Simulated scan of single mutants.
Amino acid sequence: MSVWTELVGQEPVVETLQAALADPAHLTHAWLFTGPPGSGRSNAARAFAAALQCENGGCGECHSCTTARSGSHPDIAVIRTDGLTIGIDTAREYVRKAALRPALGRWQVLIVEDADRLTDQAANALLKAIEEPASHTVWMLCAPAVEDVMITVRSRCRPVLLRTPPTDAIAGLLVSRDGIEPELAHAAAAASQGHIGRARGLARDPEARERRRAILAIPLGIRSLGDCLAAAQAINEEATARAAAIADVADERETSDLRASWGVEERGRRPAGYAGEASRLERDQKRRRTRLARDGIDGVLLDLLAFCRDVVAVQCASGAPLVNADVASDVETAARMWTPESTLRRIDAIVECREALDANAAAQLALERMMIGFLP
């Protein structure tokens, strides 16, 4: 299985990257992978990185390909963040690495998974390394859209646009790679709305499917202001709890590592400078919790948006395929109870909530306002 196998529905992208491998004239030293969430931006960058190191263009079987897939290749560095931003210190660390010669491979490859989260200072720190890269260095930036990256950085990168993978392609991958039953694979692929990772999660996790069904039941359960407040609180608390479950483990590991690196004992003296590092780590951990909770809420909003989309489809485009075919009876009930105008009002409420959360509004208040828009 080659490194390109999992880039489902991205045939034009694969052709572009393979052409760059085949002809040095097409190989630039800075690439910008963009596309909607779940389209496989970072997967495409990782596959390309592996193919650059592979003498056979990404065979998937050699030592370079297998170590690249496992994340242990010494000449492929992935820059990611669990927080809201990638800061200048992190950027400078990888700029220094970019100047080193490859240890084993043919290229020094640096992948920035969330280039849209680079602070202005961090982006400026990367700029010169991208503008005048070492001859053996390739930068790969990933972001939802070209506009999400500082103009001076993106203007020096070759763009690669990924599309939303088709449902059938995602379902086929789930069947062939994960051994999922075809019917379940297709339902999960449709419900994921083109997000490969989410489709896999839905197909493999019965609890995830139950949570989704509970979310899709919310619109028909809104009858009063009390229902609105209760639904908003439930969404916020669920997202916060799930974020905490992930963050608690990471926080404990990072705090322990920091204490060990500074030689700090439980009740011993703190070396000079430790308090500042501990405070910085605490701020980063808090930002990570916020991001994880907001991501969880956004997943709920996307599910609700897909439900309302299906209602509009039933009301105005009879016969159109449904995203949430497994709850078709609820969709049809809502289509009878709501008017097309009121369905669009609910869609507007969801979109406004997402925009408010992007602007850092209080999650609970933004969700309550949205739910009020769901009242009959």
Rank of each mutant, 00 (worst) to 15 (best):
residue 296 G to P: 08
residue 333 T to R: 12
residue 301 L to R: 00
residue 264 V to Y: 03
residue 270 R to L: 14
residue 315 Q to H: 07
residue 298 D to I: 07
residue 266 E to F: 03
residue 230 A to S: 15
residue 304 L to C: 08
residue 300 V to Y: 06
residue 311 V to F: 02
residue 252 E to G: 06
residue 230 A to D: 15
residue 288 R to W: 04
residue 311 V to N: 02
residue 308 C to L: 01
residue 241 A to F: 11
residue 297 I to M: 04
residue 255 T to G: 00
residue 237 E to C: 10
residue 301 L to Q: 00
residue 327 V to E: 06
residue 295 D to F: 07
residue 237 E to D: 15
residue 284 D to I: 09
residue 319 G to M: 06
residue 238 E to K: 08
residue 317 A to E: 11
residue 324 N to I: 01
residue 308 C to T: 00
residue 305 L to N: 01
residue 351 V to D: 01
residue 254 E to Y: 09
residue 235 I to Y: 02
residue 259 R to D: 13
residue 243 A to I: 08
residue 276 G to E: 15
residue 340 P to N: 02
residue 242 R to V: 11
residue 224 S to R: 12
residue 244 A to H: 14
residue 277 E to Q: 14
residue 265 E to V: 06
residue 313 A to Y: 06
residue 232 A to T: 13
residue 262 W to H: 03
residue 240 T to W: 15
residue 321 P to I: 01
residue 222 I to A: 04
residue 296 G to V: 01
residue 303 D to R: 01
residue 296 G to A: 12
residue 310 D to Q: 06
residue 298 D to N: 10
residue 319 G to H: 01
residue 316 C to D: 04
residue 331 V to A: 04
residue 308 C to S: 07
residue 323 V to K: 01
residue 290 T to H: 11
residue 343 T to W: 00
residue 343 T to D: 02
residue 256 S to L: 13
residue 297 I to H: 03
residue 257 D to Q: 07
residue 264 V to E: 04
residue 276 G to T: 05
residue 352 E to D: 15
residue 333 T to L: 14
residue 274 Y to E: 01
residue 323 V to W: 04
residue 275 A to H: 10
residue 331 V to P: 00
residue 297 I to C: 01
residue 347 I to W: 02
residue 234 A to W: 02
residue 301 L to M: 11
residue 305 L to V: 05
residue 258 L to S: 04
residue 344 L to S: 02
residue 261 S to V: 02
residue 286 K to R: 15
residue 230 A to K: 14
residue 257 D to T: 08
residue 280 R to A: 15
residue 267 R to S: 11
residue 260 A to T: 10
residue 292 L to G: 00
residue 262 W to T: 07
residue 257 D to M: 08
residue 352 E to R: 11
residue 282 E to W: 07
residue 336 R to E: 13
residue 290 T to G: 14
residue 276 G to C: 00
residue 257 D to R: 11
residue 341 E to D: 13
residue 280 R to T: 11
residue 234 A to T: 11
residue 226 G to I: 06
residue 309 R to L: 02
residue 324 N to D: 04
residue 317 A to W: 00
residue 335 A to R: 08
residue 292 L to I: 03
residue 262 W to Y: 06
residue 270 R to V: 03
residue 253 R to N: 09
residue 289 R to M: 09
residue 318 S to E: 14
residue 279 S to M: 11
residue 340 P to E: 03
residue 250 A to W: 07
residue 315 Q to S: 05
residue 238 E to A: 14
residue 342 S to K: 13
residue 273 G to A: 05
residue 294 R to C: 07
residue 233 Q to K: 14
residue 324 N to V: 00
residue 259 R to G: 10
residue 249 V to P: 05
residue 340 P to G: 05
residue 350 I to H: 03
residue 312 V to C: 07
residue 242 R to L: 15
residue 251 D to F: 09
residue 348 D to A: 09
residue 339 T to V: 08
residue 335 A to E: 08
residue 337 M to W: 14
residue 247 A to K: 05
residue 261 S to K: 08
residue 231 A to E: 09
residue 238 E to P: 04
residue 283 R to K: 14
residue 256 S to F: 10
residue 274 Y to S: 03
residue 254 E to F: 12
residue 287 R to D: 14
residue 247 A to T: 10
residue 291 R to E: 08
residue 275 A to T: 15
residue 307 F to T: 03
residue 241 A to D: 13
residue 245 A to L: 12
residue 280 R to N: 08
residue 243 A to Y: 05
